[in-house]
Nucleic acid binder design. Structure first.
Lengths: 141, 141
DNA sequence: TAAAATAGTCGACGCTATGGACTATCCATA
DNA sequence: TATGGATAGTCCATAGCGTCGACTATTTTA
């Protein structure tokens, strides 16, 4: 492959991406959720996002959100709440059951991820956190 | 959130993951491919993977690969080749046209990713590469 | 007040993903 | 060497994802 330095950065970034992708898929499936559903629930946990906000957060069309929310609402994990300030908007609120399963998902991700890094010395972990924070802002255009 | 140090690592990892996820989606869509199709083409570029290998690489069931390959074959981007050593297996080979579009995809990812990091000094880039390589192996169970 | 922009919904269409049943092939080992 | 078990791919049915275009209701702006 004879990777140039830049290609090496790209390559490792994608390697980490694919590992986390797999972790997200298997973890959400284990809880009876699709990855998209799990991601939506995580976004709805602290904000009460509107449908349009969910569409931009999930990088998809707004018409997709309708069905996504329908299925999660049918299972009692969230509710539609009208926005008091703008009657065009609908906001998504998690039910207690939705909070529970979202917490389960996050905890599962958290424990597998932290156990994977448990052998790392804290100095190495700190420098990775620091570099990843810069990388995340660099990646946002 | 008052994140503990470990939660901070998880949080930044997921932040980077989601940015790359969005980049993959928009880039593949721009070339008329789904993200799964683009990923399959990338895997088929240097190896000639069997269907089962593709299934594990893409973290999905083998029954899914049949249709995925069907659609890419119908568009002339790859061919099915019987394995000479094991007549149960079918291997996937890219056509020249498939090589071309795969190269376009990779180059698009590559350039946007490297321009995002263009302002980074090379020492910082090197240490990120080094840490990410360790992280990728740590993430593989 | 009329025109333009925004928020969500619906229907049609194709792609993704799984599970179960099926065929063909390979590989033990009796 | 036969036969039983494992493996590789396919097909079907079903559910979910994702987009586009058209539509209604509600703001916003001119």
């Amino acid at each position: 492959m004879a990777a140039a330095p830049d290609d090496e950065l790209v390559e490792t970034l994608i390697g980490v991406f694919m590992e986390i992708d797999g972790l997200f898929s298997t973890t959400s499936r284990g809880l009876g959720l699709t990855p998209q559903q799990a991601q939506l629930l995580c976004f709805a946990q602290h904000l009460q996002p509107s449908f349009g906000e969910l569409a931009t957060l999930l990088h998809c069309d707004k018409t997709n959100i309708t069905g996504l929310v329908d299925r999660l609402q049918r299972r009692g994990l969230l509710t539609r709440q009208p926005d008091p300030n703008d009657r065009r908007m609908t906001r998504v609120h998690l039910t207690p059951q939705g909070e529970a399963v979202t917490g389960q998902f996050q905890q599962a991700i958290n424990t597998t991820l932290t156990t994977r890094f448990s052998s790392w010395p804290s100095t190495q972990r700190d420098s990775l956190v620091h570099l990843l924070q810069s990388a995340a802002t660099a990646l946002r255009p």
